[in-house]
Design a protein around this nucleic acid. Structure first.
Ligand SMILES: [Mn+2]
Ligand SMILES: [Mn+2]
Ligand SMILES: [Zn+2]
Ligand SMILES: [Zn+2]
Lengths: 118, 118
DNA sequence: GTAGTTTTTTAGAATAATTCTAATTCCAAT
DNA sequence: ATTGGAATTAGAATTATTCTAAAAAACTAC
């Protein structure tokens, strides 16, 4: 954990709105005015590869980042652009409901929902 | 339906391996040697926006395209790079198992699984 | 502490999938 | 055949991300 990585991680935990690298860059600059965007990408890569942050992709938009390590999905509100966490109901294992091929080993399961709030 | 759109659509249906735009370009060239990559993108955009083809994104890799309109997920085999369709077991409505916010309207549900075959 | 080594950060260039622009081609209707 | 709109095309532009190389920082013996 370097100073920069710590601030990036704190930025992610302090507002769990799934910011993009650019948004994280702007928030990190308030704390570390000389930080560079390359460093933000480097820090995020370090955090993601050490499984302390998840990278969330919705379509081909810029990646977003999430510090919630519990298994969960994402709801993308098309009206507001917000992305919020969606938990699975207790004791639900989604894989049970899928017709997976023989011998399939799941390493990662990603659920993205798009819609809006009535 | 123009000639190009028809060939792109046929390419997609004839081998349902979720090809990228580049792969579709190469396959289409066998039928239409003068077709351009821009046209492939234009055709795919037309097919996707008319809901006859689905765009499938796995991480930040190039988009893949799928002519299967039934609700289904995707299994991305990390060992081979293949992407295959995953059907939900009969009469399963995944949304039932999710803790959605009050008033959430689902317009699209996307399930991507990464793993391998033992 | 200093010298040497490794890691991280930084600025800026490079990359690559996709989109855009503007010119040309196609095609259906008159 | 002419025309008008839509589609296709080649190539330039865009943009999120990655790469490169140099400077800074962090570590590790001595
Ligand atoms: Mn995704
Ligand atoms: Mn996706
Ligand atoms: Zn999340
Ligand atoms: Zn599919």
């Amino acid at each position: 954990m370097t100073k920069q990585r710590k601030v990036v991680y704190d930025v992610l935990r302090s507002k769990r709105d799934h910011p993009t690298a650019q948004m994280i860059f702007e928030r990190t600059q308030k704390e570390l005015p000389t930080v560079s965007l390359a460093t933000i990408y480097n820090c995020l890569e370090a955090l993601v590869s050490h499984d302390v942050v998840k990278q969330v992709n919705v379509d081909r938009e810029p990646s977003r980042y999430c510090p919630n390590l519990a298994e969960h999905g994402h709801f993308h509100n098309k009206q507001t652009g917000d992305v919020i966490d969606i938990n699975f109901k207790p004791d639900v294992n989604l894989a049970e409901f899928l017709d997976l091929p023989e011998g399939a080993v799941i390493e990662d399961l990603e659920l993205n929902i798009k819609g809006f709030l009535k």
